[in-house]
Design a protein around this nucleic acid. Structure first.
Length: 827
RNA sequence: GGGGGCGUGGUGGAAAUGGCUAUACACGGCGGCCUCAAAAGCCGCUGCCCGCAAGGGCGUAGGGGUUCGACUCCCCUCGCCCCCACCA
């Protein structure tokens, strides 16, 4: 451990105080200046910040400060995603009210972020559990209800037995709860949904236009929406003119290969198809059996498929043949029509089931030569398919759909994997859903002038059985806004992902009290120019926020189609090969880190150790290296402070060494700027600054007797100030302090970002690599843009090249301007 | 099963568009200076093999290809990671 560190604690406290007093990072709308909205995903106030937060906020702050220096009017706000289950669980465990727990956590975490020196406009802080915040989403809920975009229905939902609440599809990961990892069970329940499927097409289409997003996030959203094209049509039930089974298929071309049909066990039609009491009993038992298997079991694709054959049969409309009808656990009620035509020849699942139940298999696509697989899902020529024979799969699909449509038995159909967003939560700490149930008038929204529907303070939290709000009589008992009679309030609360679907809009005018946000402010700041957050939200928050923004647009509230122009998905923070977590005991505490090394070092290391999109391997030695580097900068400036202060700010070197050094300075500016602008590779930007600092040390010790003292010190000043400017957004406190010590009255962050001086970058000579047959044999100093024939001659005459070409015939010479010469020989 | 990505020293990672001696920068290691000693700092060396050296050969998971030239492009194999998943 070093004993000789620069006084980072004093410096950091001083500049944090100064910036706050100056209100330096306040954002004010100014239509005369280009804006830049820089946003990091806001945190859940869990108690303390962790290293993942340090990383994401260091990235965001770098970009925000950089854009300030580039002359943008920057909005860089922070807030709290303050509703959610941990607050409620803490209340159950420790008897603290969720509000108290949450606000205490916010206070502590705010102080932590302030100690990091992140340049937020704290006057725009937003807290989502504040009624002044959630009242507006209650208003939008009512508007969505009016338009059918919010609706209530009974359905089978994902139930987390540990969290005692419903989860949206997006919140279930491989059959487990995204938050607590408990196994999710199906449950039949009434609840509220947002009709995100109405936007499936648009959400998908816009994926192509989100060019500032990482490809992998776009791919994940596309897959999640899961569009598939096909046909939906009726299969008459044999001998039952009143009944038919409607099926969806993406392969209408394979209909001649349908050898049986399957319904999901829960399909309502099954009840009407059962022939007698005995069959009804068998169905009931089968359903019970399926219901008993957990979600995890159901997801194991390789387990045997269970089925029950009904006595009814359906008729293949293409062939007129009757085929058997099953209910089976491999068909899902939630997708398509909950019924399929089974084509074992071309679908592996159907093939497996057919083999297990001894059903015939018909091939309708000619197999490629050498094919020895089971079901064949590839392209080919149709066979055994009546009027489709000889066509390609694609042509046969079209023709089969035409046939279906002409006969009026079905339609071409697009299905999505995306399901409506279930937003009901049977928990306390969330925004109340502003709906009432009147004994006379039925379900209806709360009157707009009565909003917000306040979350009551006094509530008993046990963590067991039903919505806690249903026990609060003063909340539940209300009067009907229509008839004034007795009414009961909805006791479910909204999914907390609803709050995070619009907080970026609230930041535009956080204290506005006549609406969700002030229109002019939102029009100025939106969309978010750069959004930064973890990949774990690729299909959760990021999809919901896109949907919600489109809803607000269609309600006439915003003009933008998409909320986030560019997205940076940062990787996780890893230590000893595993994600940092309390259970693994590999957590690094940011408080401790900042206390020992300072915020600047913490920030520098998290930006230097890996490019932002990759996982970052935490390494104590690496942190010390970052600290060492800042000390090295500090020491140099202080050691030469008087001379530097007295020197001119810009150097005009007259010596070769001086010009070379100045070129290094300006090449560093170019490299750092490119790294930030081009692909956010801050790690290489930092390494370029490190190289410049190394060059400064080398120059200082070597240049003394090679040039006039005035030239030397002017160059050093230009170099040092360039380092401070380039390093400012990364390590703001120490650079601001040194900047001020150099005699500047104005903040470093009020300076313009440096631009390379073209004159300094000019080279008279370049070094060419000389290769013989692709192997480097020599180097050549030549004038820039020397004529090719001269380069060829010099290369061939070179002493080191000669032995390699003497015994061989030169076949050709490749000259790449200002790069290399390659002499190609023949034996 | 479907989709996406990755594989470079002892370690984290460089090399945008194929070419400015592959491994910058940092960590770790080794050596030196400073010191009574240490810490801190400063200066060197640090892919592998052969060689006293000059120098040469090999080297970006493995194999093949395209090219004057491949970490980079194409094909195959192996390994790892992420997302989705009986979605018909």
């Amino acid at each position: 451990m070093s004993t000789d560190r620069y006084p980072f604690r004093d410096i950091e406290a001083k500049w944090q105080r100064t910036w706050e007093e100056r209100k330096q990072f306040r954002a004010i709308e100014d239509p005369g200046r280009p804006k830049f909205y820089c946003l990091e995903m806001f945190p859940y106030p869990s108690g303390r910040i962790h290293m993942g937060h340090v990383r994401v906020y260091a990235i965001g702050d770098l970009l925000a400060r950089y854009k300030w220096m580039r002359g943008f009017n920057v909005l860089h706000p922070m807030g709290w995603d303050a509703f959610g289950l941990p607050a409620e669980n803490a209340a159950i465990e420790h008897g603290v009210h969720p509000a108290i727990w949450t606000y205490e956590n916010i206070d502590y975490m705010r102080s932590q972020l302030k100690k990091m020196g992140i340049a937020y406009d704290w006057e725009r802080e937003v807290t989502t559990c504040d009624p002044a915040y959630y009242r507006w989403e209650q208003l939008v809920f009512i508007k969505m209800l009016e338009r059918g975009l919010a609706y209530r229905r009974r359905s089978t939902v994902n139930w987390c037995p540990s969290c005692q609440t419903v989860l949206a599809n997006e919140q279930v990961e491989a059959g487990r709860c995204w938050r607590c990892d408990s196994e999710v069970t199906p449950r039949d329940i009434e609840g509220w949904f947002f009709k995100i499927t109405a936007y499936a097409d648009e959400l998908l289409a816009w994926c192509d236009r989100l060019t500032g997003w990482p490809e992998r996030v776009i791919t994940m959203q596309r897959n999640w929406i899961g569009r598939s094209e096909g046909a939906e049509f009726e299969l008459p039930v044999a001998g039952r003119p009143d009944l038919s089974v409607r099926v969806f298929t993406t392969r209408p071309d394979t209909v001649f290969g349908m050898t049986y049909t399957v319904l999901a066990p829960e399909q309502p039609l099954v009840d009407r198809l059962a022939a007698d009491d005995a069959e009804r009993r068998a169905v009931a038992e089968f359903r019970a059996q399926v219901a008993r298997q957990s979600e995890i079991e159901r997801l194991a694709a390789d387990r045997p498929k269970r089925g029950l054959r009904l006595r009814a049969q359906v008729v293949n409309p293409f062939t007129g043949a009757a085929v058997p009808l099953f209910i089976a656990d491999y068909v899902l009620m939630g997708y398509g029509t909950g019924a399929i035509m089974a084509v074992p020849g071309e679908d592996q699942r159907d093939w497996d089931f057919a083999r297990q139940h001894d059903l015939p298999i018909v091939e309708t696509v000619r197999r490629p030569d050498g094919w020895d697989g089971e079901a064949y899902a590839g392209d080919g020529i149709k066979i055994n398919s009546g009027f489709l024979d000889g066509l390609t799969v694609a042509d046969a699909k079209r023709k089969a759909i035409d046939w279906i449509v002409e006969r009026g038995i079905g339609v071409a159909k697009v299905n999505y994997r995306l399901r409506d967003w279930g937003i009901s939560r049977q928990r306390y700490w969330g925004a109340p859903i502003p709906v009432l149930y009147c004994e006379q008038c039925g379900m209806l929204p709360e009157a707009e002038e009565k909003l917000p529907v306040l979350l009551p303070r006094d509530v008993q939290l046990s963590g067991k059985g039903g919505s806690p709000l249903s026990d609060v009589a003063s909340f539940v008992n209300a009067t009907c806004p229509k008839c004034g009679g007795k009414a009961r309030r909805e006791t479910d609360t909204m999914d907390t992902f609803v709050e995070s679907s619009w907080y970026f809009l609230r930041y535009c005018s956080p204290r506005y009290d006549r609406g969700m946000f002030e229109r002019t402010a939102a029009e100025y700041w939106m969309p978010v120019d750069q959004y930064i957050g973890g990949i774990e939200h690729a299909v959760l928050h990021l999809l919901y926020a896109r949907f919600y923004t489109k809803v607000l647009r269609d309600l006439g509230m915003v003009k933008v189609d998409e909320p986030f122009t560019a997205l940076l998905s940062q990787g996780m923070v890893i230590k000893d090969g595993a994600k940092m977590s309390k259970s693994k005991g590999n957590v690094v505490d940011p408080d401790e880190l900042i206390h020992t090394f300072g915020a600047d070092t913490a920030r520098l290391f998290s930006l230097f150790a890996a490019p932002p999109e990759k996982d970052l391997d935490w390494n104590e030695h690496g942190v010390e290296g970052a600290s060492r580097f800042l000390n090295r900068v500090w020491r140099f400036v202080l050691a030469h402070l008087d001379a530097l202060r007295a020197a001119p700010r810009r150097a005009a070197p007259t010596t070769d060494d001086g010009r070379a050094f100045r070129r290094t300075i300006h090449e560093t500016i170019r490299r750092v700027t490119d790294d930030i602008e081009h692909d956010f590779h801050f790690n290489t930007a930092i390494s370029a600054v490190m190289e410049l600092v190394n060059a400064i040390y080398a120059f200082e010790s070597a240049a003394a007797d090679r040039m006039p003292a005035g030239e030397r010190v002017a160059l050093l000043r230009e170099a040092v100030e360039t380092v401070l400017l380039l390093l400012g957004p990364i390590a703001p406190h120490v650079t601001e302090e040194l900047w001020s010590q150099l005699g500047h009255g104005e903040s470093l962050f009020a300076q313009a970002w440096p631009t390379p001086d073209p004159a300094a970058l000019v080279r008279k000579e370049v070094t060419l690599v000389v290769q013989v047959d692709g192997k480097v044999r020599s180097r050549l100093q030549v004038d820039v843009d020397a004529p090719e024939d001269r380069i060829q001659r010099l290369a061939l005459q070179d002493d080191k090249v000669q032995p390699w070409v003497r015994a061989r015939a030169v076949e050709r010479v490749v000259v790449v301007a200002n790069r290399l010469v390659n002499i190609v020989t023949r034996a």
